[in-house]
Amino acid sequence: MATTYDVRLGPEGAALEAKNVSVFYGDKQAIDTVSLAVPKKQVVALIGPSGCGKSTLLRCFNRMNDLVKGARVEGDVEFRGQNLYDPNIDPVEVRRRIGMVFQKPNPFPKSIYDNVAFGPRINRFEGNLDDLVETSLRQAALWDEVNDRLGESAYALSGGQQQRLCIARTLAVKPELVLMDEPASALDPIATQRIEELIYELKEEYTIVIVTHNMQQAARISDYTAFLYMGKLIEYGPTDTIFTNPREERTEAYVTGRFG
């Protein structure tokens, strides 16, 4: 079965490229020989029905699957010309460069400041930490809401604020690529809109791969969309094409809501 693949990389090339990636959990295959290139400074959305493997694929991109017992990855994920699954690659270093925002806001039980400072501190950041925390919170559009209470617990924030804090925390380690795993699925519509606006702004500086089960969201925020179904990449192309004129019948059935 062929995959329809219509992504042309610009002059900046790919931020990350998966080549024939398969993922197994024990005997069960969750991802079946997926290849896709993520263009630099673009937003790529991974869509598909529950259990299609979109989160699994995302977690391959920063070796988060290493933490899952029994998970095995085959194929190459190329980042800066190197295969992330090469035995000489340190997954800790990978995750410092490819950040991740999770489905449920997961701030640490620490102050707002310490949450943002966590990454820089473990990475032995030597500049002005206060400035970095402020910059990161501004980038995450949270600074104006929290600048007078940085010492308060992160749990004092609302869910949407917590998620923006998690984004600020990720940005503070200055990643080259940001992976987002359904970052707005636990949030109300207004908080979701803030996150979407934020993703749109972050595109200026960062490459973003976002998993979403919300097709309208994918249509609104992404430049490219990849449709996965049962572990396979069915179609990958410009978001406009995927939503208005998909070439694969199954993509059309999914984006028009006939299954999923």
Binding site: N62, M64, L67, V92, E93, R95, R96, R97, G99, M100, V101, F102, K104, N106, P107, F108, P109, F118, G119, I122, N123, C166, R169, T170, V173
Partner: peptide, 19 residues
């Protein structure tokens, strides 16, 4: 998810455990 959050920032196992 707290452990994953820390790993996602490039923390080592020791840093995740102790910090």
């Amino acid at each position: 998810v707290l452990r994953e959050g820390a790993y996602g920032l490039g923390a080592t196992k020791l840093e995740v455990s102790t910090r």
